[in-house]
Amino acid sequence: MVKLTINGKPVAIDVDGSTPLLWVLREQLGLTGTKYGCGIGSCGACTVHINGKAVRSCTVPVSSLSAAQKITTIEGLSADNRHPLQQAWAELDVPQCGYCQPGMIMSAAALLNTKPNPSDADIDAGVTNICRCGTFNRVRRGIHLAVTINKRGRS
């Protein structure tokens, strides 16, 4: 039995410990917002947060995790699309096919956790997800817009 804390809730799952977190999220917990793209930690479609840091969940066996670690998936980022990144993404119509976007948003959210006002160079270094539709320029604008939305929300 593997015990995890996902989106603020404790869960206990009867699963082989070698199963990657990605597949436990998708198959045991039904959290299919986290996507399978490559299985080798290369594309970033499976990005979630562990204690606020971006992690590629396809390469993390659940046996390596504990209930003390806070795991956040795209479903847990906000209850109602109110996260500044989600607002910015909606404002700019960022997604095309959208398959990579949960991972893209989670990468961007982790970046904002450490750099609340990232430069373009910070974005280049911090967002390394693959998007085959090619949404990058709107992703960049979206991150900058989220910073503005965030400031507006606080003032």
């Binding site: 906000s78 997604p95 959208g98």
Partner: peptide, 12 residues
């Protein structure tokens, strides 16, 4: 705006 954006932002 696109009609299919919102569900692409939250995993739905």
């Amino acid at each position: 705006k696109r009609l299919d954006t919102l569900d692409k932002l939250n995993g739905k």
